[in-house]
Design a protein around this nucleic acid. Structure first.
Lengths: 210, 210
DNA sequence: CACTTAATAGAATTAATATTCACATTAAGT
DNA sequence: ACTTAATGTGAATATTAATTCTATTAAGTG
């Protein structure tokens, strides 16, 4: 299980593979999985169909690779953008800001994720949805953990930390989603949302971010 | 443009049409649009394929009729379940309770809506997504209006009422969605969520629902 | 520079399924 | 009982697109 020494061959392979995935992402995110043909992907990636099959065993495998690998990047970027050692309020703030930032830098992927990933179209061939949920779970649990700690310290109102996490996440997603379709609302600075959230999450009325 | 007097003929026609739509809903919601064939719908509805085409010009038209008509029912039920004349806090409470109730009574539809309606699969043949958004917009504006009134009266914190609406909606949806996959979290009583929301939405700390 | 191996191409094959249409059945009216 | 109109049928057709497979080209090697 050598992990080191990629080597020219390997690197070239990786690069081509990545090019295919990026071409596919562009197409899928605008047209949707079922409205993109392997031929179109091939053209966009500047390969022939046959070649795609040297990289991915079929269309769905290509799609799955795309979704799961992007998700990994997304979550990893998120995780490393946050300093998880600070005080609970700062962590939540940072976490949300990181999320918003990464979201805005990956609109193609996000659009695809929201429109197709939860789609029942794949629930039969299944697996992927579950796999993705597990990955995401790691992150949400981490955030819920922060809430829990904050609750013990008397910073946050006492509830099920998971609920609090869900509430925050739901709020953020609602804004991000709205911004996706109505760019006028697009968030860059999540402070107003955090403010709205904290003044429910904090045990006492505070001067949150003035 | 006679609207009255449906007549036996007309009623029969309606009933059969509805049966087809219900059969389609069952199938679509479990398998997804692309994994359901017209034949399956025909079998499920106890008609022959050809008959389906007497009611709907093609598969997509059937799907669109299903989605938009159900949405109309959904929104109308919501609207009439709420007494829009009370005080702002009660209206919001009632509205949320109505939403949760209707959601839980229409899980098939909701599941389909969430998984396919926003799907890019239709964005080209378009129209529907926009049409649905407009319908929904009517309801969200109504709620935002309640927030606005409440803000003027000094009940709610001052922000863009649309933001507040989005935040509440996002929270509710997050819980409902979670409940869809993890029945242990399924909400019947939305009070804890409202509590979390209000103690950010209300200008002062209050004893909300004890 | 022969020669072997790997990479790429894209036309041909295959499979799935939406849609049509000529005919059969049923119901309504006389 | 008979005629006609409305409804329903489902095998046949047409379309679309995933996948395969063999020929072609390029890269690596001694």
């Amino acid at each position: 299980m050598e992990t080191k020494a990629p080597g020219r061959k390997e690197r070239e392979y990786r690069r081509r593979r990545r090019e295919i995935l990026e071409a596919a992402l562009r197409l899928f995110s605008t047209n949707g999985y079922h409205n993109v043909t392997m031929n179109e992907i091939a053209v966009q990636a500047e390969f022939a169909v046959g070649t795609l099959y040297k990289f991915f065993s079929n269309k769905e495998a290509l799609y799955r690779a795309l979704m799961t690998e992007k998700l990994d990047e997304y979550l990893q970027e998120w995780d490393s953008a946050v300093d998880w050692t600070g005080d609970e309020i700062s962590i939540i703030r940072e976490s949300v800001k990181a999320h918003v930032g990464i979201f805005n830098r990956n609109l193609d992927y996000v659009r695809l994720y929201l429109s197709e990933a939860k789609s029942a179209s794949f629930s039969l061939r299944a697996g992927m949805e579950q796999e993705m949920k597990t990955k995401i779970r790691g992150m949400t649990d981490k955030v819920a953990g922060v809430f829990e700690r904050g609750m013990r310290k008397g910073i946050f109102r006492r509830t099920n930390p998971l609920y609090m996490m869900l509430a925050l996440d739901g709020m953020i997603d609602a804004f991000l989603l709205e911004g996706l379709e109505n760019p006028a609302i697009s968030i860059v600075e999540p402070d107003p949302i955090l403010d709205l959230f904290f003044n429910g999450a904090l045990l006492k009325e505070r001067d949150e971010d003035a």
